[in-house]
Design a protein around this nucleic acid. Structure first.
Lengths: 245, 245
DNA sequence: GAGTGGTCTAGACCACTGC
DNA sequence: CAGTGGTCTAGACCACTCG
């Protein structure tokens, strides 16, 4: 294993090549979410590099939340089943007091054909099969978010309302456990919109009152878009928090 | 210089102690924004540790955007005057096309006494002097954001509307150059609200139409809160983008 | 060519976990 | 106690910038 020296244009340091190899093993499912990956010394042996080089590769993957290091135990593949990462993608906070218990209430789940927008975002062809889910998110028993979720049919074809209703845990932990799809990264676009009739009813607000529209595209390993969702947040008693640095 | 070995409860690795020392020099103004700090080998000599240890400390500070590494040149103190970091805190994007040229239009600047809320957020006492700024942010000549900005008077007491009008560049670069205050981190809370009369006029939308309310607290070195601002964003043609990982 | 940060190595020792 | 990740060191060499 060698770094490409003396070849500036395509130069890539050794540890990044190692990082790619580890990523390939993650994508390929050699190590599954929640499992331990081999120790640093073992990986160093396998790849024929020093432990320090493996360490730097793993450091980056851990910084990207793909791996999780635990001193004395080992390095784990990050999982949405891990309570630590449970709400990593939900940036919601109560205006006063604690946010309380959250409940996901599945409303509908049906099959459809991808329109222009869905096809573009999910990297599908027009009219490819997709699955659409509508659900309500409640905090302390009060409805706060209505989500409409678009999923590629080739992967999520067998998803049903029953599965959603019976699942204990986050949506992403269901996707991970039942469909082998792990969300790794997401982009959100936020706007303020006026509540339409049906959303207003579900959220218990007046039609036309301001709602926070959150459009999210989620990516799995390898930058593959595997979810497109639009949430309408009632921000009467909650807000979306973000940290800038 | 030694790591505290054999003393588990307060154990702090050497590189973190070095990191604190560098942070102290930043806070104390030994190196100013935009300047180069001493080379890694020089710092290693000064602190009596190996270059690798300094490197790890600097790595963390660079990851937090406090320092900026440039291969072959040196390590710089991050600055809001640097065009690379110019819009680091503005997460705005046009729905279609490019965002275009941005212009800051100062509207008002007056002195006041801190109310309960401002005092709490900025860590002041009730009725301590503060400065309040109102300004409009335009993109391609169209108004998109109205900001109301609360600043502690002890630091920003001499800020005037004239200064704001004459300044070329971002607000934070003015704060940095003229008041020696560098924003390092910020927390934002987003909600959807209905436009009040005056904001609606300024933004060219109808009264009562939905706006994105962005409340921001900015921190300088050492976690000191030095700015509280509330922006109302018209999201008719723009959106707030956020990356989750 | 001299100086800077960036990569890679090999080896020693520390801190944490679980058997 | 053995095995894991975490820290620290010293030294070699590479890539980039500038005079």
């Amino acid at each position: 294993m060698q770094a490409m020296a003396h070849e500036s244009p395509t130069f890539s340091p050794l540890y990044r090549q190692i990082k790619s190899l580890i990523l390939q093993s993650l994508e390929g499912g050699e190590w599954r979410p929640g499992e331990v990956i081999p120790s640093e010394t073992e990986l160093a042996g396998r790849f024929g590099v020093s432990q320090g080089t493996v360490r730097k590769a793993v450091d980056e993957l851990a910084a990207e939340n793909l791996l999780l290091r635990r001193q004395g135990k080992g390095t784990y593949v990050a999982s949405h089943n891990d309570p630590r990462a449970f709400f990593r993608f939900l940036r919601l906070e109560a205006l006063k007091g604690d946010i309380g218990l959250s409940t996901s209430v599945p409303l509908e789940c049906w099959r459809a054909k991808a329109g222009m927008e869905a096809a573009r975002v999910l990297g599908l062809k027009l009219a490819d099969p997709i699955v659409i889910v509508r659900r309500l998110l409640e905090f302390s028993g009060k409805p706060v978010v209505v989500d409409e979720i678009y999923l590629p049919g080739d992967v999520f074809g067998s998803l049903t309302l029953e599965m959603l209703k019976n699942w204990q845990g986050s949506l992403y932990s269901l996707f991970e456990s039942e469909f082998g799809v792990r969300m790794v990264r997401a982009e959100e676009r936020l706007r303020a919109v006026a509540a339409d009739r049906s959303s207003a009813e579900l959220l218990g607000v007046k039609e036309g009152s301001p709602l926070l529209s959150v459009e999210r595209v989620s990516f799995s390993y390898g930058g593959r878009a595997v979810e497109w969702r639009r949430g309408l947040y009632s921000t009467a008693e909650h807000c979306y928090v973000n940290e800038l640095s």
